Deep mutational scan, measured.
Amino acid sequence: MSIQHFRVALIPFFAAFCLPVFAHPETLVKVKDAEDQLGARVGYIELDLNSGKILESFRPEERFPMMSTFKVLLCGAVLSRVDAGQEQLGRRIHYSQNDLVEYSPVTEKHLTDGMTVRELCSAAITMSDNTAANLLLTTIGGPKELTAFLHNMGDHVTRLDRWEPELNEAIPNDERDTTMPAAMATTLRKLLTGELLTLASRQQLIDWMEADKVAGPLLRSALPAGWFIADKSGAGERGSRGIIAALGPDGKPSRIVVIYTTGSQATMDERNRQIAEIGASLIKHW
Rank of each mutant, 00 (worst) to 15 (best):
T187F: 04
E175Q: 02
A225I: 00
A124Y: 15
R176F: 05
E237H: 09
L205Y: 11
M127Q: 03
S233A: 05
H110N: 03
D212P: 13
R176T: 05
G142D: 01
P172M: 11
M127C: 02
F58R: 11
P25V: 06
K284I: 02
D177E: 12
T116W: 10
F64D: 11
I171F: 04
D36Q: 00
I93K: 13
I206A: 14
G226Q: 13
M67S: 09
T147M: 15
D250M: 05
A77K: 12
V31I: 13
S57A: 10
V157S: 04
L89E: 00
E164Q: 10
H24C: 04
L74V: 10
M153F: 15
I283R: 13
V42T: 00
T179F: 01
M127T: 03
I93P: 15
T262E: 09
F228D: 02
G154N: 10
K144N: 08
G85Q: 03
R220I: 11
M67F: 15
G76D: 07
P224A: 07
V78G: 08
N168D: 04
L49M: 09
E237N: 15
H94E: 12
E166R: 10
A132I: 05
L89A: 03
L196P: 08
F70Y: 09
E46T: 05
F64L: 13
T112C: 00
E119N: 13
N130T: 01
A183V: 05
G43I: 06
F228Q: 14
V72F: 13
W286P: 11
I256W: 10
S96K: 11
D99H: 13
G114P: 03
R63D: 06
L79T: 11
T261A: 04
Y44S: 08
M184P: 05
V106D: 06
T69C: 03
V78T: 06
T178G: 05
V258I: 12
R176M: 01
P217H: 13
A132R: 04
P217C: 02
I125D: 15
T187I: 00
L218G: 03
D231S: 04
G226I: 01
N134D: 09
P253D: 14
I278T: 11
M268Y: 05
A222R: 15
S128F: 09
I45C: 11
T138E: 11
P65S: 07
N272D: 13
Q88P: 12
A148D: 01
N130P: 01
K284H: 02
T69P: 05
G216L: 06
R220L: 08
K232L: 11
S51C: 07
F149N: 10
G141M: 06
G52S: 04
V78M: 01
R81K: 02
G234T: 06
L188P: 04
Q204A: 11
E102C: 12
L188Q: 09
L223P: 04
Q203L: 15
L282C: 14
R271W: 04
